[in-house]
Nucleic acid binder design. Sequence first.
RNA 1: GGAGGCGUCGCCUAGUGGCCUAGGGCGCCCGCCUGCUAAGCGGGUUGAGGUUUACCCCUCUCGCGGGUUCAAAUCCCGCCGCCUCCGCCA
Length: 422
Amino acid sequence: MLDIRAIREDPDRLRASQRARGESPDVVDDLLAADEARRGALAEFERLRAEQKNLSKEIAQASGDDKQALLDKAKELAAEVKSAEAAADEAQARLDELAMVPSNIVIDGVPAGGEDDYVVFREVGDRPQLDQVRDHLDLGESLGAIDSARGAKVSGSRFYFLTGPGAQLELGLLNLAMNTAIEAGFVPMITPTLVRPEVMSGTGFLGAHADEVYRLERDDLYLVGTSEVSLAGYHSDEIVDVSAGPLRYAGWSACYRREAGSHGKDTRGIIRVHQFHKVEMFSYCSVEESEAEHERLLAWEEQMLAAVELPYRVIDVAAGDLGSSAARKFDCEAWLPSQSRWMEVTSTSNCTTFQARRLGVRERTERGTRPVATLNGTLATTRWIVAILENHQRADGTVAVPTALRPYLGGRELLEPRSREV
RNA sequence: GGAGGCGUCGCCUAGUGGCCUAGGGCGCCCGCCUGCUAAGCGGGUUGAGGUUUACCCCUCUCGCGGGUUCAAAUCCCGCCGCCUCCGCCA
């Protein structure tokens, strides 16, 4: 949802943003018309309602014939008030509906265009020199780390078991991420993975990509695709104090995605799965501070990637590929040797006031309250195991454990193929 | 799943159809007073929207949504949340 008053003042800004995303600028005129209609209807209702209140007070003091005459008049007025209120409510609902349509206004400097129009900021680290490349599933199976076949047997395609060193690797990654976050001053959180419709909708996940989300119809709850959802809802309908700096939370949760539109894509291994774990950073801050905070979230992501010794690049995602709530998004992509391509491993978005406005998260200022900015970013996910196995594989079939993860694997420096099939 | 109780401003609370333009206390903010602090005195202090250069003013907001009524914090219906007890389960 966008600020209708801001659109009234500067409609061209939204038009330009819509064009950059490849979406229609016509919604702007629809919005302005609906806003005008709403204000007209509201003024009429308020006028009648004020009249009714005054009349009511007269009735309380009148008596006899006077009172009866006033009562007759009041009865008529009551009907008028009722219909004026209905009209005002309807006009408000029309505007609300329209206001939910446009995606967030992109920040100046975001590249225009679609999926392939990103800008590469930098490339960090050296890609491994490998004569023979095995992919992560091949490696994971021989190490006894990933069991895809039994995942499918138990739960269907895109499910898996992490076993032995695989399970330890994931726990290690997530703990390393959690510790990194705590050290940086984040409040560690373990979050609900089922949320109410208002929260899911408030974060912007029920728009164009609603098919991605699991829904439990009997209970009217949604399974989150990231703890961003729960953490955004955490302060909903609250006035928070961000005057002393951002409120920072690090959420640990399981994540669920239907992957409805990706049949046949990344079907092998654990790159694209229905359920995984993630540690997510989430910040609430003033809108003025949001761009600096975005850079900081990116820096913490890069710190994690450096800690697990992965080669990666950072891209500035183009407007058309942002998702509805983001005003800017930076992705880190790790090198994927088996496919000679880059694979998204982190994503950090500045949602400016888009989510906060829908969820009612405000801050106090000298002149009333206003929505804060919300930002999120990935510190580690199950998918990182893919990049770690592939980039740290060695010719003898072993996989080197990055130094930072060794404490979580009992000090082991190498993962070795198991001798016995299980 | 069953029974009962509760939901009013940041917190505590008053309020049983018109005197509520929601009162009081605590906390907080501003001022006065005062060697300092405390106390005392005066004022301010829910949020959303409309109107306005601004001040003012107006409407909505007593968990949420309906209804009754000229008029609802107050009466009726539905829902949600919390608490207590019982049952069932891990």
